[in-house]
Simulated assay, not measured.
Amino acid sequence: MTNPKTTPRQLRVADLSAAREHAFDLRLTAPETEAMRDALDLLDLRKPRLAGTLRPVGKSDWQLDAQIGATVVQPCVATLEPVTTRIDSDLRRLFTKQYDDPGEEEVEMPEDDSVEPLGTEIDLLAILTEALSLALPLYPRADGAEDVTIQVTEPGKKAMTDEDARPFASLAALKDKLGTPES
């Protein structure tokens, strides 16, 4: 495997040998880790890593198989206490010259979301950032954090409850008010 200190952040496709697999082990410097932490809006980020191989597929395509790893600290959605999560997941991307870019503002998601257009470089740092952002817990919760109900309204008015928001709540209230018997 390549020495982590010498793994480039971007791999030039023209420099890759189409006759063999290329191993990489991307570990970030302290400034890169800090920048990624800020970009992902994390409280802390430790040991971000992207390690794997890039192998030729066909005449001009490249397949990336890798593992991402990191320890992230996010605020709890209920208490804002720090929540630490270890992320370890597999990643696969196929970089192809035959990528069909629809060029429209609204498009349907393709069935295979691992296919990417092949440019002149493969940006390992961007791949790690994207994969890590997708792997983050959406609603991190601290141990023992209870659900919090927040009711906000104008002064002097009654706050709307979940029961009020139900589609037939007002009809049920009207029926009760009118005393209409059930059918």
Rank of each mutant, 00 (worst) to 15 (best):
G52Q: 14
I87L: 07
E105Q: 13
L125D: 05
S170N: 14
Q67V: 11
A78W: 08
L40E: 04
D143G: 10
P167G: 02
L138S: 09
P82K: 03
A173D: 14
R37I: 03
R86C: 14
T149G: 13
D41V: 12
E108R: 13
R55F: 14
Q74R: 02
S133I: 02
R86K: 10
C76T: 11
D101I: 00
R12K: 05
M1T: 14
T6G: 00
R49W: 08
R37N: 03
R9M: 10
A159R: 15
V107N: 06
E106I: 03
A131M: 10
L118C: 13
K175F: 09
G156A: 04
R141S: 11
D90V: 03
D123L: 03
L125V: 10
V73S: 11
G156F: 07
T153K: 15
V73Y: 05
V57T: 09
D123Q: 12
T149D: 14
E111P: 03
A131V: 08
P110S: 01
V152K: 11
Y139S: 12
A30L: 15
L138H: 10
T84I: 13
K175A: 11
Y99P: 04
T71I: 04
P8V: 15
D164N: 14
P31E: 14
L64R: 07
L42T: 07
D65E: 06
L28S: 00
H22W: 09
D25I: 03
R46I: 10
V152H: 09
A135S: 10
A66L: 01
L28R: 02
G52V: 06
D25T: 04
R141Q: 13
P137T: 01
T120C: 02
V107Q: 04
D44V: 12
L178D: 14
V152W: 07
L42G: 09
A142K: 15
E105N: 12
L11H: 15
L128D: 14
L132R: 01
E182C: 05
A14K: 06
Q74I: 06
E116Y: 05
E108Q: 12
P137W: 08
K97P: 00
R27H: 06
L64K: 02
R49A: 15
T33V: 02
I127G: 01
A51Y: 07
L54K: 05
P110F: 00
A19T: 13
P75N: 03
M1A: 01
F168H: 04
R166I: 08
D38K: 10
A135Y: 15
K47I: 02
T2V: 11
G103M: 02
A51S: 05
P137G: 04
